[in-house]
């Protein structure tokens, strides 16, 4: 089935008595990549860790300050607020896509006319350039001229403040996030549904189970591991959201949408507190590693169950 195209000279006569096999130096294959990774990934990690112990302002002096940056960070009310805001944003930006994405997977698992085309349309937001989409959302959120408030008025609802009010900005940004990433949840869950057995459904139908009962007691338990994978991936992604928030609100109004990543950006590249910003990265990094390990654990469990 596969053409193995080896040079003829390598086919030696003494196949029955292979010589002692040389050790296979697989690491040589990984070497060029590891060198580059060391340069652009490992070096920044280590450097950031060192920087987080320094007082470093661009143009100013560099000074070892130990854990002072962290002490300052944990006492910084603006940082604390941004962490809480990030968690609040993350919870919403995980739960909503998970619920809607699972629903979408159930829907697209069925057969109906134009399913392929409609699924493609549904997936499109996932790959669209976040900045480009954020610009369009910004225009749509415009309080007077935006199309969204017009659509609300058509169905008889009062105008909404969208990103122009501290009390609604987070939920509005969550909406953009839901729009963007629900398709990814759908794909992961749909992947899980492809492996569903059909027997339980047949007997449930005979027993007169409703659609909801079949979903609740057969489908859901079986796809739960996939939903868990989606939860972890969504959590990590939601924690890191930057592009859309930065383009739409720059963290405003005031600091009402300043999440951890925006706080980090402002500290590093607006105020140039590089040491302080590095401490933020370290805290961020710890959270991400913990979640990545959780993801590995869940995927491992998934393999055992499969």
């Amino acid at each position: 089935m596969t053409a193995i195209d080896l040079p003829a000279s390598t086919a030696t006569a003494d196949v029955e008595k292979p010589q002692k096999l040389a050790p296979r130096r697989y690491y040589l294959f990984a070497l060029p990549a590891l060198v580059l990774i060391a340069g652009v990934i490992i070096f920044p990690w280590v450097f950031t860790l060192v920087m987080s112990l320094m007082e470093f302002k661009v143009g100013g002096s560099v000074e070892f300050v130990g854990s002072a940056n962290f002490a300052k960070l944990f006492a910084d009310a603006r940082f604390g607020e941004s962490v809480l805001r990030t968690f609040w944003f993350t919870i919403l930006a995980v739960v909503l896509p998970i619920v809607i994405g699972t629903w979408a997977a159930v829907v697209f698992h069925r057969e109906f006319p134009w399913r392929g085309v409609l699924r493609t349309v549904f997936i499109m937001p996932m790959m669209a350039t976040p900045v480009a989409v954020a610009l369009v959302w910004t225009m749509m959120f415009h309080p007077q001229l935006g199309v969204l408030n017009y659509l609300l008025s058509v169905i008889g609802l009062p105008p909404f403040a969208w990103v122009y009010d501290p009390s609604t900005v987070i939920i509005t940004l969550v909406l953009v996030e839901v729009w963007h990433w629900t398709p990814l949840v759908m794909l992961i869950v749909l992947g899980g549904m492809a492996a569903l057995p059909s027997d339980p459904y047949d007997s449930a139908t005979i027993d007169g189970a409703t659609d909801w009962q079949m979903f609740r007691f057969i489908t859901l338990p079986l796809i739960l591991p996939y939903i868990m994978v989606a939860v972890v991936i969504r959590t990590i992604d939601a924690l890191k959201v930057f592009d859309t928030i930065f383009v739409i609100t720059q963290g405003g109004p005031g600091t009402a949408s300043e999440t951890l990543n925006i706080f980090l950006y402002l500290q590093a590249f607006q105020f140039y507190n590089l040491g302080y910003a590095s401490a933020v990265v370290v805290v961020f990094f710890v959270i991400i590693i913990a979640l990545s390990l959780l993801l590995l654990y869940v995927r491992q469990k998934l393999k055992w169950n499969a």
């Binding site: 990690w45 980090l264 590093a268 910003a277 961020f284 991400i288 590693i289 990545s292």
Partner: peptide
Amino acid sequence: RSKAYRTAIMILIARMTPALSYLIPLF
């Protein structure tokens, strides 16, 4: 092929780390 799982985990964590966090040193 060498089943270097620790390297694989490092790659995964690199995938997960926010892009922004590489920027300070590289900058």
